[in-house]
């Protein structure tokens, strides 16, 4: 088990949030680094764990980007096979795995697109829309990837924070409504939402940093 020196309290904000890896005790997930290290070492069971944890993220991303169920399945398969063969390029860190997998998925998605474009050109169709279409598609896709990463981050949180965040951010409930439905004090709900948002933002930053 990795020992990480945690700050004893939330440090005062003293610089861009994004550069500090501030982590709360209850949120630090050493299992991610552990499974990443085993993957790099060539442990096939680690690949299974990685698949079980992140295949839905990769698959949903591919499906949204490609708009075709069959292509999304193929891309998902290729991403994890490619992940295995290039596991030596992974540097274990808490955000590295999702960032790395999303990065591989991006490549596979553009491969599929390139193949489709070739087919399209052969059919002498859709050449004129190409240039404009792709840029807006890519930026929308970037948002999709981040939305999915956030969804995963929240799903991985322990309760009650997970439920509270789903109610607040996905169901759009007010803090008072959440307090009512969960029976937790209003202050506790607020604190969970804030800390949850901090956690989301930090994970997102980690993924952005890793995928640069």
């Amino acid at each position: 088990m990795t020992v990480v020196a945690f700050p004893t309290r939330t440090p005062r904000y003293g610089g861009p949030v994004v550069t500090e890896a501030v982590t709360f005790d209850d949120e630090h997930d050493t299992s991610v680094e552990d499974v990443a290290a085993r993957l790099v070492a060539g442990d096939e069971t680690a690949l299974e764990e990685v698949y079980d944890r992140w295949s839905a993220l990769v698959h949903t991303y591919a499906h949204r980007a490609l708009g075709d169920a069959h292509d999304a399945e193929d891309a998902t398969q290729q991403v994890f096979v490619a992940a295995w063969h290039s596991r030596h390029t992974l540097t274990p860190s808490p955000s590295a795995l999702p960032a790395w997998l999303i990065g591989i998925a991006r490549h596979k998605i553009s491969d599929v697109r390139a193949a489709r474009a070739r087919d399209a050109r052969r059919a002498e169709a859709a050449i004129t829309v190409d240039g404009v279409g792709i840029t807006s598609e890519q930026s929308a896709e970037h948002d999709v990837a981040e939305q999915l990463v956030i969804r995963q981050v929240v799903q991985d949180l322990p309760d009650p924070r997970k439920t509270i965040l789903f109610l607040a951010f996905w169901e759009g409930q007010s803090h008072a409504e959440i307090s009512e439905s969960t029976g937790l004090p209003l202050g506790t709900v607020k604190s969970h939402v804030r800390r949850g948002l901090i956690h989301i933002q930090q994970q997102l930053e980690g993924v952005r940093r890793e995928s640069r």
Partner: peptide, 21 residues
């Protein structure tokens, strides 16, 4: 980050994909 929260559910790939991998 708050604005990005709320995205659609994650959909697991069909079972056979895992076996293929």
């Amino acid at each position: 980050a708050r604005a990005l929260a709320g995205g659609g559910p994650l959909v697991a790939p069909p079972q056979h994909v895992r076996a293929q991998v």
